[in-house]
């Protein structure tokens, strides 16, 4: 059955929402919304396009499951998503806004921990002395596991942290963390430092398309407008 409506998802709040709406403005696509709180909108002159305001993680899932055709979300969330989702999404354009780095941070008092080689060695000593694995708080389990493995670090456990990850070390929930950082200020405020070679991913906002939808001429046309400078 032919799919008529083209669904485009953008973030529902904050700076990412404003910046995403600017992308549409620059492409001369005027978003028509009933109110500021309305989560579904349309585009002037394009009756078959529906704009859906969603949570950034949900946008990735919606693209991967075919619920939407085009979306703007973070590169970090795309790379963190399950392979089954990630493989069904194409990155069309990476923007210069919404920038942040996913980093590995340890206590500033860990003077002997400067780089991943130190962290690997400390994790072994930690395990041998305390008979438990070192705990790393993160909301990016897949990306963290991938980075740890590439740096030879195997003696750790991941602890899920869905918010305020920076205080996980202070409250003894974890021994170190991986988290997003833009300026590093929050990390500094929480007595944490990023180790050398500790940037797991340089992220920013991206324009994505569902791979299946790229076969649709109308989707291609909209994408062309959105990536125009």
């Amino acid at each position: 059955m032919k799919k008529d409506i083209i669904n485009i998802s953008i973030v529902n709040k904050g700076r990412l929402k404003t910046e995403s709406e600017n992308v549409f403005k620059k492409a001369k696509l005027k978003i028509l919304s009933k109110s500021d709180r309305s989560l579904v909108a349309s585009i002037k002159g394009y009756p078959l396009i529906r704009v859906m305001y969603m949570n950034a993680t949900e946008i990735i899932e919606a693209l991967g499951t075919g619920v939407c055709d085009i979306g703007i979300s973070g590169k970090d969330l795309w790379r963190e998503s399950d392979v089954s989702i990630q493989s069904k999404i194409s990155l069309v354009k990476q923007y210069e806004w919404g920038k942040s780095d996913l980093v590995v941070a340890v206590s500033t008092s860990w003077l002997d921990c400067v780089n991943p080689t130190d962290l690997e060695e400390i994790s072994f000593e930690f395990f041998n002395k305390k008979k438990r694995l070192m705990r790393c708080a993160t909301k990016f389990k897949n990306l963290t596991n991938e980075w740890m493995s590439s740096r030879g670090i195997t003696q750790y456990d991941l602890v899920t942290s869905l918010g305020a990850t920076e205080n996980s070390v202070e409250i003894s929930k974890a021994d170190f963390i991986t988290d997003l950082s833009s300026s590093g200020e929050t990390l500094r405020q929480n007595n944490l430092k990023v180790i050398d070679d500790g940037i797991i991913l340089k992220s920013s906002a991206c324009l994505f398309a569902a791979k299946n939808s790229l076969k649709n001429k109308e989707v291609k046309k909209i994408l062309k407008l959105l990536i125009k400078k």
Partner: peptide
């Protein structure tokens, strides 16, 4: 500076002594 503090003080699961010894 840290050497002046209590060596048993714990920083993120490790004692100051452990940290300084390895350092």
């Amino acid at each position: 500076k840290l050497r002046k503090e209590n060596p048993k003080k714990i920083f993120s699961g490790r004692s100051l002594k452990e940290i300084l010894d390895r350092f």
